[in-house]
Design a binder for these strands. Structure first.
Lengths: 222, 222
DNA sequence: TAGATTGTTAATCGATTAACAATC
DNA sequence: TAGATTGTTAATCGATTAACAATC
């Protein structure tokens, strides 16, 4: 295929490697910073140097989605930010349900980084009856039995799951039943759900384990 | 080389792929669950099925570190848990400094999953003078100028960095100056530090972006 | 123009999977 | 024993890097 400059038209017949999508978010983050710092254009070499990638990799990654650069010039930061947001789906705001209003959940309700990238937590859910009816930072807390109704009302497709590991699978199944399409899972368990439901998992203890491994097995680098 | 059953003796001359180390933590998590559920042994096939990997991959991953299985039997869960913890470095408890006691930082202070895997947050640091001198969940909050002294006193090697992105690079440099060896970075910026300092980064907004991409570009699976 | 930089193809490198002898 | 399962080698697959004609 020969993609033209301009809007990303959704998935084609080939599969984009997950590693490429991860780096896409990093490119976006750096581009937004470059923009804030007043840069109009950048290059695959500069972007790669900032992130520790080769220039070839930057160009190859972007080429999965279209032609965004100008030979001899590089990439216009503003244009590329717009293009990547469209690719990632964050050119529009996403209403999000937060499920599990414990310590972590409440911190996520107040997390500025979500809003900055176009995510809006519009409702929280918790099993604790004493929390239901109250609100955190202006976000109302509902009982889980109200999930389906609220999801429909706000057109919610994404949930952040921050319940204890012991409850995670069961609650996740309720999320699916309510029609949610994607789950950001903070519970330290492997969720088993229908394959059309997308899952991204973050296990905070595992992240620290990865760090201890790297510190203990420290060679020259890596 | 021909590693024998028993303790992992640290890094050899070859490099273990990062992907293997990530999966190692997932194996550990599943094995701990299997143990809790009363399983004495498991197999590469079962472990793979639980996590969505092939049996060959499970065996190959473990083979990087030694021989842990019994032909015809499989793996003894308890033994393998002990072995993986030693490999990851979490067979001992790690004292950790938490830097940036905002919403997210305070949630992390109370996060049970850290303690369960052997991490102890022993001190918090914040630039806000009104927080210094108080404590969260029994963890005292210090000014950043006390960092070096506290790090030395507790033998701290790891820090969790949960300060605003605008402050992250500068604070990270102070962490390095205080002698820390590993940083779990929650700030949405690329840290530039000496290469002997290990960094694991978690950008929560990026995790949500990965989810929106997966939901929007939903094919059969992936 | 000369210099810079892209998009893309081919070459290289590394990781995953398949296959199977050895073992319990 | 026969059946199950490992550890490891070879084959396959996929991702990264290098090279370069095309372009501004």
């Amino acid at each position: 295929m020969s993609p033209s400059r301009g809007p990303f038209r959704g998935s084609s017949d080939y599969q984009v490697p997950q590693a490429v999508v991860s780096r896409l978010s990093l490119y976006l983050r750096e581009l937004q910073r470059l923009l804030r710092d007043g840069h109009e254009t950048t290059s695959s070499t500069q972007l790669g140097r900032l992130l520790g990638f080769t220039d070839a990799q930057v160009r190859k990654d972007l080429a999965y989605f279209g032609q965004f650069g100008y030979p001899g010039i590089g990439y216009r930061c503003g244009e590329l930010v717009t293009a990547i947001k469209r690719i990632l789906g964050t050119d529009q705001a996403w209403p999000v349900a937060l499920v599990g209003a414990g310590n972590l959940g409440r911190a996520l309700i107040g997390y500025r980084g979500f809003q900055q990238q176009g995510f809006r937590i519009v409702a929280a859910f918790d099993a604790d009856a004493s929390k239901v009816g109250s609100d955190f930072e202006g976000i109302p807390v509902y009982g889980i039995e109200e999930l389906a109704a609220i999801v429909t009302r706000f057109g919610i497709r994404l949930a952040i799951l921050s319940v204890p590991g012991t409850a995670a699978q069961e609650v996740a199944e309720q999320l699916v039943a309510a029609g949610l399409k994607g789950i950001l899972n903070f519970a330290p368990v492997t969720l088993n759900l229908p394959e059309d439901v997308r899952i991204v998992s973050v296990d905070l203890a595992i992240e620290l384990e990865q760090l201890t491994f790297a510190v203990v097995n420290r060679l020259e680098n890596g």
